[in-house]
Nucleic acid binder design. Sequence first.
DNA 1: AACAGCTACAACCGCAGACTT
DNA 2: CAAGTCTGCGGTTGTAGCTGT
Length: 224
Amino acid sequence: MSTLIEEEIEVRKGPWTTEEDTLLTHYIGRHGVGPWNMLAKCAGLKRSGKSCRLRWLNYLNPDIKRGNLTLQEQQLILQLHSLWGNRWSKIAEHLPGRTDNEIKNYWRTRVQNKQPSSSSLKEMSSQFSVPCQLPECIVPSGSVINISEQIEFPQHETSPNAYAHTCVDNNNLVLNGSYNIGRSGQDMEAFRLASMSAVGEGCWICNEMTDSLWQCRELGEMGN
DNA sequence: AACAGCTACAACCGCAGACTT
DNA sequence: CAAGTCTGCGGTTGTAGCTGT
């Protein structure tokens, strides 16, 4: 018999053992996922419900895809991050078999460290007014990811002549010249009109931003 | 071979919102 | 309606393994 305090002390932390993994997997296999705190106790695990949930969702769940992210997945992450920022769980919804933790780790280790911070990107986008054209990148032809069909966002048709380039402003993304997608449709439209009035129709961005746009060209070449 | 630095990933923490009592 | 609990999310940290010197 143990007191509450003793039980709290007994809560294990740190890396999971294979025995713990087995216990959790077998329990969920028999009973399914339920209230995690109760599940942890019933499964005989000296872990918090939170820890069990994380272990299952990020590691033990058989639906999880193993191995490196594919090029398309990487591109999708970049695009979705442009749309939503650090809303990893939302991004993960559009990458079946990938977890928010995995995407978050990918972003922090392989994308964020190789580019200026998003805030500096924002600063750059507001500071530089001399435009140059953004090379077509991020979504190579033939690997179009039709985000606009998957995600509910305010949509604004652009003129038929809009370029099929992709560019980033300080919170938003223009995809394929067909839709303006962003957290704020009005903001996006304002940005688009402002940029178009300044430099003509299309998407434009400064050299420095081009260089820093997540090595998107390199990313594109990886798939070739 | 030994060490340092780097990278990738698993796991924890704190917080906020939803839900229950 | 308030308090307590649970759940999920995003940020952060710890560490094992890899690579370069």
